[in-house]
Computed example of a mutant assay.
Amino acid sequence: MDTTETFAQRVRAEFTPKGAFLNTASNGLLPARGVAALHEAALLRAEGRPLLPLFEDVESCRAGYARLAGVPAHRVAAGASVAAHTGVIAASLPAGAEVLTAEDDFTSVLNPFHVRGDLKVRAVPLERIAESVRPDTALVAVSAVQSADGRLADLRALREAARAHGARTYVDFSQAAGWLPVDADAYDFTATVSFKWLLGPHGAAFLTVPEDFGGLVPVLAGWVAGEAPWDSCYGPVAELAHSARRFDLTHALFTYTALRRSLELIEELGIDAVHAHALTLADRFRTGLAGLGHEPLAAPGSAIVSVPGLGTRQPELSEAGIEVSNRSGNLRAAFHLYNTDADVDRLLEALRG
């Protein structure tokens, strides 16, 4: 495991924010190694050179994310968005199936179930989701960390309740993977985007599935979903991939090229070290808020801190070089590996003023 000094040195070598960037819950920063990889990939296209190395990056990302998520690579599909992955799960449910969700969860986790029109979608408060699983629940779908306010779902209780009632589980790790240790093997399906805590560009997302695919139908399958992709370019795919790659979507090659380097960086630093760093900063911010007379929404153990009533300060903070979000009137600050004590103190000083 890296020492604190080595952790800081490696981070400083990779990131050059112009101000205090505290908005990873919206999108993360690109490391220098990822920017360099993007540049080289663009030159491949510009100069007409073979793109085979970019396809190799996709497989490296699949393997890197699999290690981070705690599943074998053959259970990871490489797609484009959480909404698309949710859509595949929604399309695979029988008519009339009940899907249990958390109130006001992120739209990508919810909307594909609603647009089916013939599913029973039930929403309950996040803290009641485990106790709300019942015998006729077919699927529980929830974000591990809530985008709006950083609250963590009690995934252990949810998993036990779902198992007791025979329900499948679908967890979105978009606001977790990259700072919070995750265990995709504990759930039937999980998904995440790459452009937030995983520090990649937009355009890539991962889906994990069970060994038997959990009854999913690859309704979005194209040529990349074939067992032999380059032999599957014309006509119907004769043989779908024997792995989760049957759920792949056409790859945004530049994105995966940069993401490969970001995943390598996170692995080098160690997810436990990133987790500890992020929580230390979030707790420093919470302590400082108390000194200013502000109380954030309760989200213990989260790297995301949401403060009621301060969201309207976002434009002026941005003008001052401090990037946060306004979510329904709440100021949302997110702390990741490139943030420092100085970033926290700068935000607190600005709020004091």
Results as ranks from 00 to 15, higher is better:
5 E>H: 10
8 A>N: 14
11 V>P: 06
12 R>Q: 15
20 A>W: 03
23 N>G: 03
24 T>P: 02
26 S>I: 00
28 G>C: 07
32 A>T: 07
32 A>W: 03
33 R>W: 00
35 V>P: 01
36 A>I: 00
44 L>Q: 14
49 R>L: 08
58 V>R: 06
59 E>W: 02
74 H>P: 05
76 V>H: 06
79 G>M: 03
79 G>Q: 03
79 G>V: 00
88 V>P: 09
91 A>T: 02
94 P>A: 09
96 G>P: 05
97 A>R: 03
99 V>L: 12
100 L>E: 10
111 N>T: 05
111 N>K: 13
116 R>P: 07
118 D>R: 08
120 K>A: 15
121 V>M: 08
122 R>S: 12
125 P>Q: 08
127 E>F: 03
132 S>E: 14
132 S>W: 10
133 V>K: 09
136 D>M: 08
147 S>E: 13
147 S>R: 13
148 A>R: 15
149 D>Q: 11
156 R>L: 04
157 A>K: 15
157 A>H: 08
158 L>N: 12
163 R>K: 13
163 R>G: 10
165 H>C: 10
165 H>D: 02
166 G>R: 09
167 A>Q: 11
172 D>G: 05
173 F>V: 02
173 F>Q: 10
174 S>D: 12
175 Q>T: 00
176 A>W: 03
185 D>R: 12
186 A>W: 02
186 A>V: 00
187 Y>R: 09
189 F>E: 14
190 T>F: 01
192 T>Y: 00
193 V>Q: 04
195 F>V: 02
200 G>R: 06
203 G>D: 08
203 G>M: 08
205 A>E: 03
207 L>W: 06
208 T>V: 01
210 P>Y: 01
213 F>C: 08
216 L>K: 11
216 L>Y: 07
217 V>W: 04
220 L>Y: 08
222 G>Q: 12
224 V>K: 06
228 A>S: 12
231 D>N: 09
232 S>F: 04
236 P>W: 04
239 E>M: 07
242 H>V: 07
242 H>Q: 15
247 F>A: 12
251 H>I: 01
253 L>M: 13
254 F>N: 14
255 T>W: 02
258 A>C: 02
258 A>S: 14
260 R>W: 01
261 R>T: 02
261 R>A: 03
262 S>R: 06
265 L>H: 04
273 A>E: 06
275 H>S: 11
275 H>N: 12
279 L>F: 03
283 D>K: 10
285 F>G: 13
288 G>M: 11
290 A>V: 10
292 L>W: 05
293 G>L: 11
293 G>D: 13
294 H>Q: 15
294 H>N: 14
299 A>E: 10
304 I>M: 15
305 V>D: 09
307 V>N: 13
309 G>A: 14
310 L>A: 14
314 Q>G: 02
316 E>H: 07
317 L>Q: 13
319 E>V: 02
320 A>G: 04
322 I>R: 14
323 E>I: 00
323 E>T: 13
324 V>T: 15
328 S>F: 05
330 N>Q: 14
332 R>N: 08
338 Y>V: 03
339 N>E: 04
340 T>F: 01
342 A>S: 10
342 A>T: 05
